[in-house]
Simulated assay, not measured.
Amino acid sequence: MNNFRQYWQSFKEYLQIEKNASPYTIKYYMQDLEVFFSFLHTEGLTRFCDVDERIVRVFLNTLYDQRLSRKSVSRKISALRTFYKYLEREDVVDVNPFSAIRLPKTESKIPGFLYEKELEKLFEVSDLTQPLGQRNQALIELLYATGIRVSECRQLILDNIDFYIGTVFVQGKGRKERYIPYGKFAEIALETYIQDGRKALLAKSNQQTNALFLNNRGVPLTDRGIRDILNKMVKDAALTVHVHPHKLRHTFATHLLNEGADLRSVQELLGHENLSTTQIYTHVTKDHLRRVYMRSHPRAND
């Protein structure tokens, strides 16, 4: 169909090279294209220019019939809008049929986060006399201290940690780079792990690697490996809440804002391109509201 594979591949290269899109964005955009072209094949359409707003709305109806979430539908519209914009630039089509389609409003969910007492339990479960315990402690301290994404954490190498000024160098989405400071607890945990536990884990492998976090075989941790470690720590801490790496990121942002950090600074630390993305963290906890009330209201205390 109109050299589908040719344009599928060239669009993928466009996302990688010109847009500097993250691997996850590219992965899901290409999956969305596959879904769309399967739909066009079913409808008997053989050219990109055959697609108009009516066809687009039929496609959207098929998505809603599959009971997809509004977030999933929005992502597919965004992917296809970007694809047709690319086709316009390449003079394959004259009109982008997705340009006038409004994205469905998504549910505004408040991010889940952990309270300080819940965090304390996680910080106390690791056996710091063992290499894996030292690694786990360094991992959770760094995730909470910096708010980095699990993909960013997995990519860290030894040279990314600057103990002299207490920062970690992170390459985020779209290859955007940033430096994030970390505190004393993370510093101690990282130094202990790098000087002791990491060396013991590396000795189990025949290969050399600069990756910061290693698994029990001495090779670099994967995203799934990091999640499995957190799940085990939660189980060991007997917590009833579900904890994933992104919840630690939510917790990092929430705690900073609750303690008076300004929104722009938190945006920089999180690596968000738009301030609106950071604003979802401006909710406050009941404990914080109570502290503000007790500190500020004239009749709150004797």
Rank of each mutant, 00 (worst) to 15 (best):
R264I: 08
L289R: 09
N215F: 07
N136K: 07
R217L: 07
K12A: 14
D302F: 11
R70T: 15
H250E: 00
L80T: 06
T240C: 04
T282P: 06
G225H: 08
N301V: 14
A189I: 01
P220D: 05
A237L: 01
V58G: 04
R217D: 11
L263R: 07
D302Y: 12
D94G: 15
L270S: 07
E90I: 13
F83I: 10
V125Y: 04
R227W: 08
Y86W: 11
E118A: 05
M233L: 08
R47Q: 12
R149N: 10
F169Y: 10
F48W: 07
A261I: 07
R198Y: 04
D50Y: 05
H272G: 11
K105C: 01
A21N: 14
N136W: 06
E187C: 05
L248R: 01
E43F: 00
P97S: 14
F39T: 02
I77G: 03
L289Q: 08
Q137S: 11
V284I: 15
Y14M: 14
V150N: 07
E34T: 06
T192L: 04
N160A: 12
A79P: 02
K204Q: 10
K85Q: 14
G166S: 01
A100F: 05
R217K: 15
R295T: 14
R89F: 14
K232A: 05
V95E: 00
H255N: 03
I77P: 02
V92A: 13
Q130P: 03
Q208N: 08
G260N: 07
V56W: 03
G133N: 04
L212A: 09
